[in-house]
């Protein structure tokens, strides 16, 4: 039985880089993105082989699913921009047609490129050799984590590390997501999809069927996170998938979500995490030092809030811009934020 697994490992370890190479070398961008999604799925297979169920879940949901969805929507936007007439100057387009080399034709190989390639390969050989020779440090932090599991308030070791031992990392991590949402919202407005794009009957029923199921699965994932594989990130990812489905089906209720509610949903996780971190200090302890006996419930509270926020944030990232503010002030702000910027204006 183990040698069958060995063969599977060898095949998987070979397929991954091969797929990576095919992905970057493929002439057509759409094919590259599809290969990227399949690479993500195979990667989650690899995580399962390496006994990392949490990471497998996250990789499948976020690494392959959501990132793939982001790439596909970006690709669609790029295609639409290329043929749309909103161009800086027409000459530029003509010039692009004539001498734009098809994607795959590289420019001639300058000496610098060959030199860089050589240096890169030497460096990687050195790295491979070093990896081969040096043994992994014995035990690393594993035993330390196992030792302290008693006071961490949860059974699953990954969740314990993620939210208790190194909770500060996760706090900053949630801030990174919040920052990404801020960045996307500051750069563009969500695309003005025409109202009449009614989803087909199949998609409508699919959405009506799946979304409630997804929400329960997300809740289950967050709940089970304290003992087995799961947790805030995976739960949030499933929620985000539900959000993406709703956006795809262009469900009217999604369009009508008032922007303030959306902003509070985005901010719920980081804010709650921050307040609970400070609360721990107020009851006498360091930052993020949950009281020992009720640590489990603190962690669950934070996890659920973070899951909701991650779900909403990732869906907002897929939407690709800030929503239309119904309020008058914001309307003005939106209308011209995207119009072409006069060159001399921006300081």
């Amino acid at each position: 039985m183990t040698d069958a697994m060995g063969i599977f490992d060898i095949m998987l370890a070979l397929v991954l880089p091969w797929l990576g190479w095919r992905l970057l070398a493929s002439p057509n961008l759409f094919r590259a993105v599809v290969l990227f999604i399949s690479l993500g799925l195979l990667m989650s297979l690899a995580w399962v082989r390496l006994h990392a169920p949490d990471v497998a879940l996250a990789e499948a949901a976020i690494g392959a699913g959501l990132t793939g969805a982001l790439f596909l929507s970006a690709l669609r936007r790029l295609e639409r921009l290329r043929d749309s007439e909103r161009r800086l100057d027409y000459a530029e387009k003509r010039e692009e047609e004539q001498n734009l080399p098809p994607e795959k034709r590289r420019k001639s190989k300058p000496v610098a490129y060959v030199l860089a390639l050589f240096l890169l390969s030497v460096f990687l050989l050195l790295l491979g050799g070093a990896l081969l020779k040096t043994p992994v440090a014995p035990g690393r932090l594993g035993p330390a984590v196992a030792g302290q599991m008693g006071q961490s308030g949860v059974q699953s070791r990954v969740t314990a590390v993620l939210l208790n031992f190194r909770g500060y990392d996760t706090l900053l991590e949630v801030m990174v997501l919040f920052l990404a949402a801020l960045g996307v919202w500051s750069l563009t407005r969500v695309r003005q999809t025409p109202q009449e794009k009614v989803p087909g009957p199949v998609l409508a029923t699919l959405v009506r069927l799946l979304v409630p199921l997804m929400i329960t699965v997300a809740g289950y994932l967050v709940w089970i996170g304290s003992s087995r594989a799961g947790g805030a990130f995976q739960g949030g990812a499933v929620l985000a998938a539900a959000g993406v489905l709703l956006l795809l089906a262009n469900v009217t209720v999604v369009r009508q979500i008032p922007s303030t509610l959306l902003r509070w949903a985005l901010v719920l996780g980081p804010l709650l995490f921050l307040l609970s971190a400070v609360a721990c200090m107020s009851i006498g302890g360091n930052l993020l030092e949950y009281p020992r006996q009720s640590a489990g419930s603190w962690i669950l509270l934070i996890e659920s809030a973070t899951a909701v926020s991650i779900g909403v944030t990732l869906a907002a990232l897929y939407a690709g811009g800030r929503p239309h503010e119904p309020a008058a002030r914001e309307a003005i702000v939106d209308k011209s934020a995207d119009t072409k910027v006069k060159n001399g204006e921006g300081a």
Binding site: D54, L70, G142, L162, V176, L177, F233, L317
Partner: peptide, 23 residues
Amino acid sequence: LIDPVPHAMVLTGILVSISTTAV
């Protein structure tokens, strides 16, 4: 024997990479 710390790091890493990719 599995060391959970790299798993936590990778989870954080995945989220960092998707947020950077989105922007």
